[in-house]
Design a protein around this nucleic acid. Sequence first.
DNA 1: AAATAATGTTAATCTAGTTTAACATTTATT
DNA 2: AATAAATGTTAAACTAGATTAACATTATTT
Lengths: 194, 194
Amino acid sequence: MNSQPLLSYINKIVTLTEEEETYFTSKLVYRKYLKGQYILQQGDVSNKICFIVSGCVKMFYVDDLGQEHILMFGVENWWTSDLGSFVSQAPSDFNVQCIEDTELIQVSHNIIEDTYSKIPKLERCFRIIVEKAYVASQKRIVRNFSMSAKDRYLVFNESYPEIEQRIPQYMVASYLGITKEFLSKIKSQIATEK
Amino acid sequence: MNSQPLLSYINKIVTLTEEEETYFTSKLVYRKYLKGQYILQQGDVSNKICFIVSGCVKMFYVDDLGQEHILMFGVENWWTSDLGSFVSQAPSDFNVQCIEDTELIQVSHNIIEDTYSKIPKLERCFRIIVEKAYVASQKRIVRNFSMSAKDRYLVFNESYPEIEQRIPQYMVASYLGITKEFLSKIKSQIATEK
DNA sequence: AAATAATGTTAATCTAGTTTAACATTTATT
DNA sequence: AATAAATGTTAAACTAGATTAACATTATTT
């Protein structure tokens, strides 16, 4: 298994010794999923968090009216999972499905506490990761509060130009919290402006 | 200074020894603010996180059009601060202002790293706190995605019945992301239904 | 007790974004 | 190459929530 992408990622945040790397690596599970496969399903307990080595996933939920709402995408060097379900080991509200064939490294719940205790630096690392995720989540709330759909689309576009190329437009609309028809209108509006 | 409320709070998450409590307590700062005072101002660096012993605060930002948007309230046993600014020591996007006279315990940025190293249990504690905050933030995004303003109001009401009593209605509206006029309409609508 | 400031209500008009529905284009499958 | 499935577009009618503005009520200050 090639754990290198994950180790490089972690070493940007904390510095692990060789033994620590070896120990941690021995606990990891490598997996491949095909496009369309589910990594997590609404109602199941998320017993692992996944580091994406390659590919692309969407995390979404289906509301009472059967409508799909995308909360986040995941690409190379991102984490994916329902953290709420992972930490509480309660049934998840979300699905994670592959939009492309995806390779990932899984860190399972039953090793994480033990790993934190053995290698406190990893607990620090995950603290920092979650802090960043929280800050990003708050920023998204702020954008949804005071920006128009058009401006949210432009921000998404500037922030993640690579992602926009890789996913169908109706998923971008879902992520932005608007209908695909309205995004289509926004795009044609932007095109005319130029 | 009375650090007991904070220590009880922490001991629900991790168990500190007496020496650890003493050490940590020695680093804390106790402060009182009056209603109306600012604990943090947009543009300033948030150099402390604050544990609320008593009182009530709002965290908000003012957008380009001069409109105030409330991101969260804080009451007894809650934390308040712009965590993004705190961890990165960059200027804050948010204000934190007291809605009531407020007593708090401050943990300053310059002691936090040192404290984490000396007492890894506290790093664990804060990891867990941030995890919960992140999960709550995601849930809020979900609600804003697929619930009407009326339903969001009802959820807020059920989740924080104590808070609703303590703050003016226009602030609830701001928190929900709607105008005070529309909240007024929602409330009269709810009243007629019964 | 009067005056002022802060908070809350109502109603008319307006708009960003939804819904519905029909059609167009691109991609995948046989 | 033909067909089906997935994705994207356009336009008309609609709705949740915003805006404006006038007024009502409740606190606070003098």
